[in-house]
């Protein structure tokens, strides 16, 4: 068994799909997931913009620390966090190499590290928030902010069909493999084999798109019979649909405390 295949066995489509669905719908017990999705989105907007207004690394580090604590209590998905860390470490390594070859000094590196810190803060904030708003509540929050019903529906429907599409994609991939011919010589680091798999991974999208397009007709008709377009032009229905979203004391406290901490960091 070659090393490439061993790795493939661990990170296969199935486990990625499972992780994806777990991130989306998995946690409903954390503090953040109990809050109103609109409050979470406002919170996210604040913490996504705040880092851009400072250059003081102590303040940035404090904000980063606060967001890290929130992420920790939100029990964000480990795979996603791992990918984030990998990205940041990779980025820093690149900076170091580039700085070394271009003859820059540590100052250049420090400036770039500030940028990385800002990006990391924002990424963490989005992970914390979005792993705690399931697509349904996210779509309802958007609707309540006045986004068009089609957009809000597409988000929740998109998530609904992901497992179906992944399942079909896997089957089509297998179709290619069960009738295809893998390269007999794997090449250096199995590059031939990797190239072969990559190629069919791309080709498999075409039948998937065509099959999905064919099925979508039924969905559109079904939406019509279930009164989707009727509801779209009806504000009473929108109010009824969103009536479960209620801002409670805990939501206000969470937002206020976060803002106070942010102000404290800025002032100190």
């Amino acid at each position: 068994m070659n090393p490439f295949k061993g790795m493939l066995d661990k990170i296969n489509v199935e486990s990625v799909e499972l992780e994806l669905m777990r991130t989306a719908y998995g946690s409903t017990t954390t503090l953040l997931s109990k809050l109103d999705p609109r409050i979470l989105m406002v919170w996210y907007l604040i913490f996504a913009f705040a880092p851009w207004f400072f250059f003081d690394s102590a303040k940035l580090l404090s904000i980063f620390a606060f967001v890290t604590v929130i992420t920790a209590i939100s029990k964000a998905n480990k795979l996603v966090l791992f990918l984030l860390c990998l990205g940041i470490i990779g980025q820093m390594a690149c900076y170091a190499i580039v700085a070394y070859f271009l003859g820059g000094n540590m100052a250049a590196l420090a400036a770039l590290l500030t940028l990385t810190l800002k990006l990391a803060t924002i990424s963490l904030a989005s992970i914390a928030v979005f792993s705690n708003i399931d697509p349904e509540r996210f779509s309802d929050a958007l609707l309540s902010f006045g986004a068009p019903a089609q957009l809000a529906f597409s988000i929740s429907y998109g998530y609904r069909v992901i497992p179906v599409m992944v399942e079909e994609y896997k089957d089509i991939m297998l179709s290619f493999r069960l009738r295809g011919h893998a390269p007999s010589k794997k090449g250096f680091l199995s590059w031939r084999y990797a190239y072969y798999l990559l190629k069919i991974a791309v080709l498999a999208f075409y039948p998937l798109i065509l099959n999905t397009a064919k099925r979508i007709r039924t969905t559109i008709e079904a939406l019509e019979t279930k009164g989707f377009s009727y509801a779209m032009n009806n504000n009473d229905v929108k109010r009824l649909k969103l009536s479960y979203l209620k801002i409670k004391a805990a939501d206000i406290i969470f937002l206020l405390v976060s803002i106070l901490i942010l102000i404290a960091i800025i002032l100190i």
Partner: peptide, 9 residues
Amino acid sequence: DFESQLVRP
């Protein structure tokens, strides 16, 4: 094709 008729999670 009843599966395509189910649109919610």
